Simulated assay, not measured.
Amino acid sequence: MTVSISIQPRRLPEPRAMLRLIKPITWFPPIWAYLCGSVSAGVPLSGNWGMVLLGMVLAGPIVCGMSQAANDWCDRHVDAVNEPDRPIPSGRIPGRWGLYIALAMTALSLWVGSLLGTWGFWATVAGVIAAWAYSAEPVRLKRSGWWGPGLVGLSYEGLPWFTGAAVLLQAAPRFEIVMIALLYAFGAHGIMTLNDFKALEGDRQHGVRSLPVVLGPEVAAKIACTVMGMAQALVIPLLALWGKPLHALGVLAVLILQIAAMRVLFRDPKGKAPWYNGTGVVLYVTGMMISAFALRGLA
């Protein structure tokens, strides 16, 4: 007697896999940046918490979650090499469901963005375009180790900061806010470069020219840390020039701690990149909030 067992492929996504697809761990940077922008605007938060919280949800779970779903769909062949247990290559999100989820969240992003007024809506449009330009053919800016991380840094740090301030002001933020947001977005290029270390092998096989692939982990790590350090080194004198010396000292203090962490990273860039993302990056975003309070005092 022969017993045969046939395993039928899934027809519907597994709920847990859907949550993993939109990667909650990646939501923090844009949520934090949006909060920094809200703080820096100088508008009282007490009467505007509804708009602040809605913007944080939009920046994190919705727009960032959508970008992660779009990226996983467009990267499903690369992930089959790097991380075959991910939701799409593992089959827990079958067929074209990854694409459908990304498209549905794109529509949701635009609808929620419209609730934040004109500035919030058009900033959301910019974020959605950036997400698809990063991952999807024929643009697929993630193929470049320079343009890809730059776009993500701008979308994760600069755009949410600008939006958080613009939504509360219902106007374009002043020069100082835009300048600090751009500097921290520039520095985030380094964070994104370090994030590319985890996909080194698959990127190499599929022609993604990330800096770790093109230059090697040692050089890429040094470039990433230099970019992060340079951004903060420019923030410090600007805050001092604008009459906020104590805040400038605060940013200097977290930068010094990051430099100590960078020395550890350089000993084993590939192995220590995840550690630095959980250490140096926390210090980096601490400096962002210090700067936001400095800008708030200028309002």
Rank of each mutant, 00 (worst) to 15 (best):
G117F: 00
Y284C: 08
P84D: 12
I177P: 04
G278F: 10
L159A: 10
R296W: 11
W275T: 15
L19A: 12
I7Y: 13
D203Q: 08
Y100G: 11
L183F: 11
G98I: 05
D196T: 05
A221K: 02
R209W: 04
L54I: 15
I93M: 08
I129P: 08
N195C: 07
R174L: 10
L255D: 05
Q258K: 15
E83A: 14
A260G: 09
W161K: 09
I259Y: 12
G37H: 02
G243C: 01
P212F: 10
Y184F: 15
A220F: 05
G202L: 08
G55M: 06
G271K: 04
V167Y: 03
G164I: 03
M105P: 02
R296K: 14
L58F: 03
S144D: 07
W97Q: 04
S144G: 07
I177Y: 01
K244Q: 13
L211Y: 07
A294M: 00
T286L: 15
T279Y: 02
R86Y: 02
V254H: 03
V285T: 15
G145Y: 00
I236P: 01
Q258F: 08
A136S: 10
V43L: 05
V128S: 07
A131R: 00
S135T: 06
T124H: 03
I62R: 00
M262W: 12
A299Q: 09
G243N: 07
I259K: 15
K142R: 09
I256E: 14
I31D: 04
P24L: 05
H77G: 11
V139L: 11
K198Q: 07
M228V: 06
W73V: 00
L35W: 09
G297Q: 03
A41C: 08
P212N: 11
I88W: 01
L182A: 12
Y100T: 07
L99R: 10
I5N: 05
K244V: 03
K270W: 11
L58I: 10
D203W: 06
L54M: 14
W146G: 10
M288V: 13
G47R: 11
G91W: 05
I191E: 14
G50Q: 09
L58P: 05
P87Y: 09
I7P: 02
M66H: 03
G216P: 05
L183N: 02
V219D: 08
G113C: 07
M51Y: 10
L54F: 09
S210C: 07
D85A: 15
G278M: 13
Q258D: 07
G120V: 12
P87F: 02
R16P: 09
Q232G: 06
A166M: 02
C225W: 11
A248H: 07
L141D: 01
A299F: 10
M288K: 12
L99T: 03
R20F: 02
K270G: 14
A273M: 02
W97F: 12
A260C: 10
L255C: 10
L99M: 13
H247G: 09
L35F: 13
A136N: 02
T2L: 14
A260L: 14
M289D: 08
L295T: 01
A104Y: 11
M228H: 05
L21A: 00
Y34S: 12
A172M: 15
F186S: 11
E157I: 15
L154S: 11
P274D: 14
A107V: 08
A33F: 00
D72A: 10
